[in-house]
Simulated scan of single mutants.
Amino acid sequence: MKSTLTRPGTKVSPKLFLFNVLNGVAFAIVAGLIPNAILGELLKALAPHFKIAVVLHQITTAIQFSVPMLVGALVGHRFKFSPLGIAVVSASSFIGSGAAVFKNGAWVITGIGDLVNTMLAASIASLLILFFGERFGSLNLIILPTFVAVFTGFVTLVTLPYVKLVTAAIGTMINTFTEMQPVLMCMLIAIVYSMTIISPISTVATSMAIGIAGLAAGFASEGITAAEAVLAFGTWKVNRLGVPATIILGGVKMMLPNMVRYPIMLVPIVTTAAISGIIGSFIGVGGTKESAGFGIIGLVGPINAFRFLHIDDVWLKVLLVFIAFFVVPFTVAYIAHFVYMKIFKLYTKDIFKFLG
């Protein structure tokens, strides 16, 4: 049995290495969390009435537990590792995530673990595989799973408690700031997420990692929605219908090449995010760490915002959520394009021609 990994000492630039890890994490997070994010609330509501809804909800919840291994598999795929290399990175990521805990003489799956530590495990395992490559020939079948997975697992289990402390502290700090200065922080969080969604960094992974929740999670969704609205209007007349449609359905990162070449497009995005975040703070838009990174994709943001509004009138809640996620961001995005293109002439519509 021959397993081709890569040449010993294969060189990968730091930029490409980071991009491969982040890209792998982004796809793994979406694949693992989207099913429950989209169907979870609906299935919960149907569970008391239909037994099949209970089973389906259990399935969508269980899919989330695969995230650490999906991270490893997709990171390994980005590096073009062999099946053996992908398996080793997957195993390392699973152990490093801390998702499996030994309690009372049995292993227990506690969730998806810590995503930052999972990324660290995938990075260490990938570095070791890139270093060793085919150095040991057929012995790779024994050495790589034994050495790389065990060594990486040990190192990341040591770092896990400290990484958890840091990520939990960041999440607590952000959530506390939203309570102390809600208007200012809602605007800043919305701006940060509006720029992050168009970058190689996964907003879902970031949200899960730092444990953002409550108002902060709602503002994050507002920021992502603002970016989607700006890019949808921007790409509407200079691309085929598939481009804006894909953006609305979640393919915002496809515009990353355009943003790198024309960073001026961040101006309307930031403007829309800031205004949407401020209005969202007055409405009281909330969310969870699972919903914060999606925006209006799959209506994940609006559904969770609806749950967090403490208003008895159901139709009023629906109206406020609709205003926060559709009326405000899309109206502001349209006005921002008009002001920046027609009045200030900062850019033309051609910067939104899809470069991919």
Rank of each mutant, 00 (worst) to 15 (best):
M1A: 04
K2Q: 14
T4M: 14
G9Y: 01
T10I: 07
F17W: 08
L18W: 06
V21G: 01
V21P: 05
L22T: 01
A26F: 00
V30N: 11
A31H: 02
G32E: 10
I34M: 12
N36S: 13
N36F: 05
L46I: 12
P48V: 09
F50G: 07
A53I: 01
L56D: 11
Q58W: 08
I59S: 04
T61R: 09
A62E: 15
A62G: 02
S66H: 05
V67E: 04
M69H: 07
M69C: 06
L74G: 02
G76L: 06
H77M: 07
F79G: 06
F79I: 01
P83N: 06
A87E: 01
S93W: 07
S97F: 04
A100L: 15
F102P: 08
N104W: 06
W107M: 14
I109G: 10
T110F: 09
V116Q: 00
V116I: 07
T118S: 10
L120R: 00
L120C: 08
S126A: 08
L130C: 09
G133N: 02
R135I: 08
G137I: 06
L141V: 11
I143C: 00
A149K: 03
G153K: 02
V155Q: 00
L157T: 00
T159H: 03
L160N: 00
P161H: 02
P161E: 02
L165W: 04
I170R: 01
N175M: 05
T176W: 02
T176S: 11
T178Q: 03
T178R: 03
E179S: 13
Q181D: 02
L184P: 01
C186G: 14
M187L: 14
L188A: 11
I189Y: 09
V192H: 02
Y193E: 13
T196L: 15
S199H: 07
P200E: 10
P200G: 03
V204I: 15
T206N: 08
T206H: 10
S207Y: 08
S207A: 14
M208F: 13
I212H: 13
L215P: 09
A217R: 09
G218A: 06
F219C: 15
A220Y: 07
S221Q: 15
T225W: 05
A229E: 12
A229N: 13
V230M: 09
F233D: 12
G234V: 07
T235Y: 07
W236F: 15
K237P: 14
N239D: 13
L241T: 15
L249M: 15
V252F: 06
M254Y: 13
M255E: 13
V267M: 13
P268E: 13
I275N: 04
I278L: 11
F282W: 12
I283N: 08
G284L: 09
G286K: 02
E290V: 10
S291E: 08
A292Q: 12
I296K: 00
I296P: 10
G301W: 05
F306Q: 04
F306S: 04
H310T: 14
D312T: 13
D313K: 00
W315K: 04
V321S: 02
F325D: 07
F326P: 01
F326K: 05
V328T: 12
T331H: 08
A333G: 05
Y334D: 10
I335M: 12
I335R: 02
I335N: 12
A336M: 11
A336I: 07
V339R: 04
L346E: 01
F352Q: 05
K353V: 15
G356N: 06
G356C: 03
